[in-house]
């Protein structure tokens, strides 16, 4: 039965196994409208931004020609920029664990079909639909030194509330609290979706094995949603690196630049001072930082996977 399989020339059908129908250039029309938007509004500006970052281009002073790495060199010597990088990384470091931890905590507590859980889920998710402007408006009133909600509550106990908006060390944590309050809904929902994927039989087996609640959490639940934990962490790192609106509206980067993030630096350099080349260079650095942080996290996630 083993006929010697002689090498025969075959027409190599290089086609996508999931595609339906024939390979024809006409099918490219399906992606044409999107590709047009993608190329004109994303690829071109991305390339233009990279080019700009090597130019001396100031809207007020005019175009001064290519300058090589000068914009980057200036950025590395710019105390305000370096401060904004430090602020952004610090903000990511304090907010991401809060998102992951609190999101997971809420999801674990609200992972059932009861009316009570659904009610609490609506509350914690509800604030996510508000725009940043409304959220900051609300929280500026909460943080307001003399008549804010926080001071009202502290006053009841004869205390003075910490001033998040005017204390350097508290400005970023204050913004982090607002941010968690605003968009804790997303990580919570992602964790809930993952928890619902865990088969019920696993818990029943654990119950038969007399596993304690803590043991079930550590040995069954957390390992089962490990991928989601990494995913949420990556998503939150990417989102929180883009901090802008809250800082711009609550503290305006202050006090003494203590809460100015990179995006706000880009905004000010590009759209207040109109130093386009300089702002573009700062954008590239932000892009690289975000990519690096996300890749580092995925790498860490994978290490744990293998180990």
């Amino acid at each position: 039965m083993s006929a010697p399989s002689q090498a025969r020339p075959v027409r190599v059908a290089r086609r996508d196994a999931d595609a339906v129908g024939r390979r024809t250039a006409w099918n490219a029309l399906f992606i044409a409208p999107y590709m047009l938007a993608f190329l004109v509004l994303l690829v071109v500006p991305l390339g233009l931004g990279m080019w700009l970052s090597f130019q001396d281009y100031d809207m007020l002073a005019g175009y001064g020609g290519p300058v090589g790495w000068e914009n980057y060199e200036r950025l590395l010597g710019d105390r305000i920029f370096l401060g904004s990088v430090r602020n952004t990384i610090w903000f990511v470091i304090i907010s991401v664990p809060a998102f992951v931890g609190l999101g997971l905590f809420l999801a674990l507590l609200l992972n059932d079909d009861s009316r009570k859980s659904s009610f609490f889920r609506s509350i914690f998710f509800g604030s996510s639909v508000l725009s940043v402007t409304i959220v900051t408006l609300v929280w500026r009133l909460v943080y307001m030194p003399d008549r804010g909600l926080l001071q009202n509550i502290a006053g009841m106990f004869g205390l003075t509330a910490p001033n998040f908006m005017t204390t350097e060390a508290l400005a970023l944590p204050g913004i982090a609290i607002v941010t968690v309050w605003w968009i804790i809904g997303l990580p919570m929902m992602l964790f809930l979706a993952a928890l619902q994927q865990i088969p019920k039989e696993v818990y029943e087996a654990a119950a038969l094995d007399n596993a304690s609640r803590w043991r079930v959490l550590v040995s069954i639940t957390l390992p089962a949603i490990r991928r989601t934990i990494v995913l949420v962490a990556v998503i939150e790192v990417i989102l929180q690196f883009q901090l802008f609106g809250q800082a711009n509206l609550i503290t305006n980067g202050g006090p003494n630049n203590a809460s100015r993030p990179i995006v706000m630096f880009i905004y000010e350099a590009g759209f207040r001072d109109w130093m386009l080349g300089y702002a573009a260079a700062a954008s590239q650095i932000l892009f690289v930082l975000m990519l690096g942080a996300a890749m580092l996290q995925m790498w860490i996630g994978r290490q744990k996977d293998g180990g």
Partner: peptide, 13 residues
């Protein structure tokens, strides 16, 4: 009749 996916021959001849 023959069918291959790349170098994998599903139906030789």
């Amino acid at each position: 009749v023959g069918k291959s996916y790349g170098s994998v021959e599903v139906i030789p001849d």
